[in-house]
Design a protein around this nucleic acid. Structure first.
Lengths: 238, 238
DNA sequence: CGCTTTCTTGAGTAGATTCAAGTAAAGTGG
DNA sequence: CCACTTTACTTGAATCTACTCAAGAAAGCG
């Protein structure tokens, strides 16, 4: 059977045994929660119950400040886990929202120690994934702190393309990009007005363009250079 | 015996058994590496060997871009672990530098699975710490992306104060702050010139001041309000 | 005590914001 | 299927936050 994007996310760090694969399949078979696009999965400050493995779809993790300012902290794509921080905090520090239709496989936190016992390598994979997430957050810090608007946007588009492509979710040269300019702005620490101007720049310089909710990268190498993009933080343990 | 800052870092999430305490003590007794201030502990892009538990001192984790721009991604204080990302990446994505004299206790990565076997709760604590680190990085993203210079600086000072205080490292109302304005700027995504001006603001408004490498917070509550600081991301599983 | 690094302050500038108005695109209901 | 409403995007002009350049003061170091 061809591995799904869901399984690819888990396969990346270690090769799984049959039993581990079966455990994953079993989880999926048991129960899958579906949600519409733009639905809140975890509310900020709400108590955690269970975590979920993303089986399909895109999600965004975000913080909203009291005056309405919003910062998107990360995306979650198939094969990644949301709500794991319930292991360290009883109330969520950020919100999670679906960007597309999503399918989520529950991974109850109470049974996490059990998982650690029965499938230590699955637990290890989740730990490694957490470290990968950390690397992404660190890259976003660099993006927000030390790159200008143009570089930030270029970098984000390259990251998304790479993350999707690693999961086999790129059909052709263009990709579905279910983000408004407002949301892009909230990833980049910019305003939507300025993102619109930056996209125009990218288009005019023939680097990339977003049209009809799809992203097309025309000049991969030029884009990489102008973003200072180095994909190693997204790759396996290479 | 009074728990050291080192042990406090590990105590926070779970109470340790005697055996686990002994394991920690044993590690410390075995070998402690000391380093001078402003020394590179991990070079960017270098291969990982071992991780270290910080026993004493401050460190900074940072990324340097090709043109010299620098972003400090996080600090590491006693009780925290550096170099853990060696479990997910073979080459380090960022550099780690000592800010003060530091004492480091080696935690070899090859023996990590062993640790997981023999002391699963120590491994669990390290996992929870990793999730806490993630929360700090997320807060820095918010700081960099959606707060202005004044708020960013105020927020950082409050975070540092809190993190030190949780480890029992605040002597009186003032704290040692081994950071140049250049380094503060590289945490905040600003320039050192502007940080100097912002510090003047803080001083003039009677909120806080840095003098002679020490931080004094005069108006805790005013500072909290102007930073929008909510310390929950630093606390236990409350 | 001289040398270097760090900090301060001023003046001019640029990257990004705000405000505002208009256009295009996407839903919604008759 | 079309008129209506709403949401998303584009563009211009004015403004501001934070930067650059520069030069002098203060502090740390050998």
């Amino acid at each position: 059977m061809k591995p799904s994007a869901f399984e690819k996310g888990f396969d990346a760090p270690l090769d799984l045994t049959r039993a581990e694969h079966d455990a994953l399949r079993h989880l999926q078979a048991l129960e899958v929660h579906e949600h519409e696009p733009r639905v809140t999965i975890f509310r900020q400050n709400a108590r955690y119950g269970t975590a979920y493995i993303v089986k399909a779809g895109w999600l965004a993790e975000m913080r909203i400040l009291r005056d309405g300012r919003r910062q998107i902290q990360n995306f979650r794509l198939p094969g990644e886990v949301i709500g794991l921080d319930g292991l360290a905090y009883s109330k969520s520090l950020f919100a999670v929202m679906s960007l597309t239709r999503v399918e989520l496989v529950p991974l109850p936190l109470e049974s996490f120690e059990d998982l650690q016992q029965r499938y230590p390598r699955l637990a290890a994979i989740i730990f490694v994934q957490t470290l990968r997430t950390e690397a992404v957050l660190r890259e976003w810090e660099v993006n927000l702190g030390r790159r200008n608007g143009f570089e930030r946007l270029a970098h984000l588009l390259l990251e998304l393309h790479r993350r999707l492509s690693l999961r086999g979710l790129i059909d052709d040269s263009s990709t579905d990009l279910p983000l408004t300019q407002e949301e892009l702005a909230d990833c980049l620490g910019l305003t939507s007005v300025y993102v619109s101007r930056l996209l125009k720049c990218l288009r005019e310089e023939g680097l990339a363009e977003i049209a009809g909710r799809r992203l097309v990268i025309h000049d991969w190498d030029g884009l990489r250079r102008s973003a200072g993009f180095d994909p190693r933080y997204l790759e396996g343990s290479a």
